[in-house]
Nucleic acid binder design. Structure first.
Lengths: 327, 327
DNA sequence: TTGTATGCGTTATCAG
DNA sequence: CTGATAACGCATACAA
């Protein structure tokens, strides 16, 4: 790898001049500029970001911490973040936390050890020293903490909508699936749904689940219909679980949506191609990722910030696992 | 952030001693060790990886380049890579290439600018200077190049299996979907399928597709049944497309698998919960990711390497979009 | 307009 | 067993 010294020597100038020309700081004569440029070309020089980072105590690196990229909601988020970052010349150090505090800590630590200029995190414990002590900006994604910059959607409202639409379409023995206890967004949507069910005086049951994994989803689905065989409406904790419930319902010979209605959550890409296609509460994942990155960059670059807390809209996405609403 | 100098001062020793104790290089008296340890604790010191990287010209950073994390095949791969890396204290700088040479170049460049010690790449152009000129080890994932370290599965064989099983189950007017022209694995499986179809003298049509995106998949599916309404077997280019074809077939009132059989490719997690569940050719994505990371680490750490080219097995995963084989 | 010297935080060499 | 010190590649203050 050629260094700035090589370039300087090759161009017959000092490293300072090369540095100035590269960074566009200070004057440099047209002729010498030309010399330096050809030197750079010939040596295929590219600046060593590590040295830069050491000197400036700032890098072009950013940390992204997500629970599990294997859950189809997160790739959308990640892609949004990545696209925005890459368009602004930032790079991403990526890690999966598995919602585990230790792993999370560990990643955050290596983020700072590597001089990242900011981090985007999807965590259940934003209100901890792990984040409070950070000297760099943090944006929470898909999660919130009061007064902390964050991009998320209104889980409670999403849950309420799901329940409301389910009731409006005639289900009267509803089963609400409660996602993992320590996952905030899962609990928010759960609470929202239960709230609405109670308000409307509708009978409901709860099935507890402890993960969002594809492999477990089938188990929750079986359990659901074993415990509540006469349920006529399922509000799932996310689309994966909803898909598993749909699968199980059809396997048991139940007609969807005639006998059982199902509403998912997230609107991950696969939801639209299920059979029947899944009715769900949509979160604009990709946009959320982009927004979070945009916000973080604004902090990093000290740009003006209108709002440091963005609540994105959730929308009822009606497809074929629900009946037409009664007028 | 506390530096090694702070620790040294705090412990009343020189930085050299602190460094020695941290890295376990050279002797250090038991008493001073204790002093240093408490100093580290009190100051919450963690070594600056950037400074380390600058001096040693080596980091704990690794580059991972994938086409598109939004395609559900890749999160599995990525997770495998990440798990193995993280267990070995390596971190990942991640980027999506969109199968685009420029983006790819760009990422590779910033990888080296950041002193990564190795890269894992899923690329269609492994045989280019971009990779040949790299001074650090590279492992190609899901793609191969002769003699280059790589982890992939046998696409041609996968295609052959798909066609063979489709024929064995009675389809006689098969449609093979050809994935994006520039994506090697897609072409391999396509060729394999066509090869087998020809060998067996079975009538077949080809539908060309140019992406793996969820949004486009529906279009290919519609087009397929418009052009070849009497097809009785579809070999899709991957599971996403297969899911779309399944969706469309049912929408058109076709019985699956009675009137149309469908075979996908990859066995992404969603395949098992489709209705009917998708028969597909499985690639062990997670394991492939792990294997690639393990291989890369072996290169990085100069460990002995048995095989630098790993071809993982593809397996026919029989579910419900195909009929029982004729005995 | 350009060059010299210094320091960013670490590790390794070498002398003590 | 320990401490000065040079060097990694770069950007900046200051001189020229």
């Amino acid at each position: 790898m050629a260094t700035i010294r090589d370039v300087a020597k090759h161009a017959g100038v000092s490293v300072a001049t090369v540095s100035r020309m590269i960074n566009g700081t200070g004057y440099v004569h047209e002729d010498t500029r030309r010399n330096i440029e050809t030197a750079i070309k010939e040596l295929q020089y590219t600046p060593n970001e590590v040295a830069r980072s050491l000197y400036k105590k700032k890098s072009k690196l950013t940390g992204l911490l997500l629970p599990d990229i294997t859950n189809p909601f997160f790739p959308e988020l990640a892609r949004g973040v990545e696209d925005e970052m890459q368009e602004n010349d930032y790079r991403i150090i990526f890690g999966n936390s598995d919602e585990d505090r230790d792993k999370e800590q560990d990643y955050i630590q290596t983020f700072v050890q590597n001089n990242v200029v900011g981090v985007i995190a999807s965590t259940n414990s934003p209100d901890t020293d792990t984040y409070r002590k950070l000297a760099i900006p943090v944006v929470f994604l898909d999660r919130t903490a009061d007064d902390s910059p964050s991009v998320y959607s209104d889980g409670r409202e999403g849950g309420r909508i799901a329940a409301r639409e389910m009731i409006a379409r005639g289900s009267r023995r509803v089963t609400v699936m409660q996602g993992p206890k320590h996952v905030r967004p899962a609990q928010d949507r759960f609470k929202g749904a239960v709230e609405m069910l109670k308000e409307q005086g509708i009978d409901y049951n709860v099935v507890q689940t402890s993960s969002f994994s594809f492999t477990d989803a089938g188990t929750w689905a079986e359990q659901l219909f074993r415990q509540y065989p006469d349920t006529d409406g399922v509000i799932a904790s996310n689309d994966i679980v909803a898909a598993a419930v749909l699968h199980e319902a059809l396997k048991l010979g139940k007609k969807v949506p005639e006998e059982v209605q199902i509403i998912g959550y997230d609107d991950v890409p696969l939801s639209g191609i299920l059979n029947p296609a899944l009715t769900t509460i949509r979160q604009p994942a990709y946009d959320m990722g982009r927004a979070a990155a945009r916000l973080l960059i604004a902090f990093i670059e000290n740009k003006p910030i209108e709002q440091s807390t963005l609540q994105m809209p959730v929308t009822f996405t009606e497809r074929d696992t629900t009946r037409k609403a009664e007028q």
